[in-house]
């Protein structure tokens, strides 16, 4: 890895239109009240998929603890652009922890410090003034780097395409209240369905396994009455798709659960394993004999 040092990115937030927030000219955040902090960033830069890539260091100053981590990167990027340099590419969209786009490994932990948060929900108050912060992209064969900190997670879409749905064409549904679902069951399905597909589980797993992602989807659909017709097929097809995409196997270390921003439980993986065994047994001819009266 070639470590080039790019110091001197002083992050001057100098433009005259900053400082005043939204809400009219009357609004003015008193800059003296704001705690100023600075950090050194060690960032993975890679121009494109075929590029070798390496770490580059940046000094980011005049930050405040109330900034989000991504706002800090925005500030760094604006300075880079003012100097005519190319900004650090990273994915983010909703900036409120639900779209699943943001995806940085911060100091060795996907989504950085804090439990149950995405990268965009990490704040600078989690870091000490003067800290050196290492930022890397998700690393997995199935998530190739596109540029800098952006990776291609379309493998997840293809896994969903293999079976992550109920095959109900529009218009063919029965009345919504025709199948009763207990509160507990709906809650359980929701707990699994809360997955945002960010891929942190893969990023942290030493085997780069996508089991937690697949398990969450299978659990969500397989426990609901509407999901029963495709239960077996879905389980087998999604697991096969996962293997085909080049994700590793689960060796039950549960790191995935610890970094999951939605705190999806590894219990779902046990469920998935159970569903898989069940599907294998049922499809191997050992199904119960149904006699018609």
């Amino acid at each position: 890895m070639s470590d080039r040092t790019h110091v001197g990115c002083g992050c001057q937030r100098g433009a005259s239109h900053e400082g005043a927030g939204h809400g009219g000219a009357a609004v003015h955040v008193d800059e003296r009240r704001v705690n100023v902090m600075s950090v050194r960033l060690r960032v993975w830069r890679q121009k494109h998929a075929g590029d070798k890539g390496g770490f580059v260091e940046y000094d980011a100053g005049r930050l405040t603890p109330d900034m989000s981590f991504l706002e800090m990167l925005d500030v760094v990027n604006e300075d880079l652009q003012r100097d005519g340099d190319e900004p650090i590419a990273f994915d983010s969209d909703c900036r409120e922890g639900i779209c699943g786009a943001c995806s940085l490994v911060i100091d060795g932990v996907p989504h950085g410090p804090g439990q149950g948060v995405t990268t965009c929900q990490v704040y600078m108050r989690n870091f000490s003034d003067g800290a050196t912060i290492t930022i890397e992209p998700w690393r997995a064969q199935a998530f190739p780097v596109v540029r800098d900190l952006i990776v291609d997670r379309s493998a997840f879409d293809r896994i969903i395409g293999a079976g992550g749905y109920n095959s109900t064409n529009t218009g063919s549904a029965t009345d919504a209240n025709s199948a009763l679902i207990s509160q507990a069951q709906a809650e359980e399905a929701f707990d699994a369905a809360a997955c945002i597909g960010c891929g942190a589980c893969v990023a942290t797993c030493k085997n780069a396994s996508a089991m937690l992602f697949v398990a969450a989807k299978v659990k969500h659909l397989n426990i609901l009455p509407q999901g029963q017709p495709e239960r077996r097929q879905r389980t087998v097809a999604m697991l096969k798709a996962m293997d085909d995409e080049g994700f590793g196997h689960c060796t039950n270390e549960y790191e995935c659960e610890a970094v999951c921003p939605k705190e999806i439980s590894v219990e779902h993986i046990a469920f998935l394993n159970r569903e898989y065994l069940r599907a294998q047994v049922l499809s191997s001819g050992m199904r119960p004999v149904i006699t018609e009266a």
Binding site: T134, T204, K206, E255, E257, A258, V259
Partner: peptide
């Protein structure tokens, strides 16, 4: 470069 354990 760095991967830390935070869980199991």
């Amino acid at each position: 470069r760095q991967l830390r354990s935070v869980g199991g």
